[in-house]
Nucleic acid binder design. Structure first.
Ligand SMILES: [Mn+2]
Ligand SMILES: [Mn+2]
Ligand SMILES: [Zn+2]
Ligand SMILES: [Zn+2]
Lengths: 142, 142
DNA sequence: TTTAAAAATGCAATTCATTCGCATTTGCAT
DNA sequence: ATGCAAATGCGAATGAATTGCATTTTTAAA
């Protein structure tokens, strides 16, 4: 298993260092797309580090809680997806055909959100922007 | 039961006119906040038009399919919410404390989405923007 | 107005993702 | 090495939503 940089171990965030926990974070770190608990469960099995599905869920909870991982609820997918948290504010472009998720690491909403806070007198804590469409690949196949 | 304007009956959209279906659309039309299937189920019971919960779900499916109603998946709520579709593009401002949902009937993303389509070569079908924060009322109580 | 087919409904059972209880095991500080 | 909290496995439970099927209702046609 590869050393995951700053997070080689879980010391410092109050989590114990277990084989499956390290493996799960590793899978998440290398994954180019967000993954579900079930997918992680299966990947672990392939790597012969198999963990129980409830353990996978519990681990993902912990990692999310510690902000090492981000939990995504994409409309149209009944399962939650998880991705390694690289500490970048981002939005998602989702292909309605192949379900591919592309991160957009820019945000058009900075000023808008400030203005909205003023107008509504809310204190704004965050936002979520998902954009839906059809990717070039899927568009070709028509 | 009040005549719901253009949708006094379901003729023209291929749905049969049943008591519970009319009542459900009526509840949705009058509701100031989006509502869950369960809430509708309970409101129906109060009005002595009680329908089975599966009927409520099936009806909401149909209404959503016919675009008379919009289905919302708000992060942090395990249930789906439904609202009468007034054919207005909108976004939501959600209070993390009291869960109040405020519709925002303006969109800051028009040009951005067009630019994104060009950059990414996606054909963009839609988007979803939810903004999270704390409403004035909840902020006072601190 | 009767009639027949299609659509809608009630009810119970089922699905699916996720969570929980509890006995056992493991990691880690001492 | 020892002890204790944390983590795990396993099976059962949860909760929202869906489904199968028998029965009822709606609607259009006769
Ligand atoms: Mn943003
Ligand atoms: Mn918009
Ligand atoms: Zn695609
Ligand atoms: Zn509030």
């Amino acid at each position: 298993m590869k050393d995951t940089g700053i997070n080689a171990t879980f010391k410092g965030c109050g989590l114990k260092n277990t084989k499956s926990r390290l493996a799960i974070l590793d899978i998440l770190e290398r994954s180019v797309q967000p993954v579900s608990a079930e997918q992680i469960f299966l990947e672990l099995k392939e790597k012969n580090i198999s963990a129980n599905l409830s353990t996978v869920y519990r681990t993902l909870d912990k990692l999310t809680e510690k902000k090492l991982v981000t939990k995504l609820q994409i409309t149209g997918d009944s399962r939650a997806l998880f991705e390694y948290n690289r500490m970048v504010h981002k939005h998602y472009l989702i292909c309605l055909e192949c379900k591919k998720i592309t991160a957009i690491e820019s945000c058009p909403l900075g000023d808008y959100v400030k203005a909205l806070a003023r107008e509504t007198d809310y204190s704004i804590a965050g936002h979520r922007l998902d954009i839906y469409g059809f990717c070039p690949d899927c568009r070709k196949k028509d």
